[in-house]
Amino acid sequence: MSTIRFGQAITQALDEEMSRDPEVILLGEDIGRPGGSFGITRGLLEKHGEDRVLDTPISEEAVVGAALGASMMGARPVVEIMFNDFIVLAMDQVVNQAAKIHYMTGGRLSAPLVIRMLCGTNGSTAAQHSQSLEAWFAHVPGLKVVAPSTPRDAKAFLKAAIRDPDPVMFFEQRMLYNTKGEVDGDSEPAPLGEGLVVREGGDLTIATYMRGVHQALEAAAILEEDGISVEVWDVRSLVPFDRDGLRASLERTGRLLTLHEAVARGGFGAEIAAIAASEMFDLLKAPIGRVGALATPHPYAPQLEAAMLPSVERIVDVARATVRGGAGVV
């Protein structure tokens, strides 16, 4: 057991999987000798060789296609997309090709590749380097979507994603890279599709993921002083989604608030709310609260960005309204 940063957990997962399986290869911009824009792949080229750590041109579509074609023939590629904002340049390969190859070939081919993407703001990173686009991919059948909040989960889920037979979109929130947590030395992969109760409570479930988990814990501490007992449920994996975990939490609390840094409109919180409302309505004692970013591009000015993004204060306000049975929106 050791305490490491989130970013180091990603590096360890890549390193350990590359040591375990020679078919694991990495592709991405600047990931070779520079070690990646955020240092995640530092040292891996030197250790595993330039045939397995492939520094690519700035050609997202060709790079994702290269990973896809190689994966269809037995490789286990992991692509680093510097910011999830850039994945749009490869959307045909992700959405029309990789996501559908298993289905449209009647199960005769599959695409076991992982696309790692940085997401979320890092403070004034503005409109093209700050988005959280996970909901787009959860909408596409054939893709799996993972969004860890701690170093332990990041490592265990990335290892699982690399061994998974399907394409996995793996989100890494920039603001979490320097957060620390305990990780097992040579940890095993954790199965995708299980949520986790991070904090138990009896009045309200906050269903959230990535940085939202940390914000929810802060909000829970404040709400506790008001006598509101909050359960924080870390979704961890959007697809597959842990319906049983959500149900178990709502059985304890009877109230739901969804939270993510992504824009609220059409966000994955809407899917969670719809599952709760359509399949678990009998458990709900109050309208569902929603917290997400306002529906604007990310502003550059710090005070505008702060107004756009979910804050602990806003979470606390919506939580209070939800528990009082009022309309808890935004």
Partner: peptide, 14 residues
């Protein structure tokens, strides 16, 4: 075309 690039990559690796 991009998939063919990846197939060529894996052919080279093999």
């Amino acid at each position: 075309i991009p998939i063919a690039g990846g197939a060529a990559l894996q052919q080279k690796r093999r």
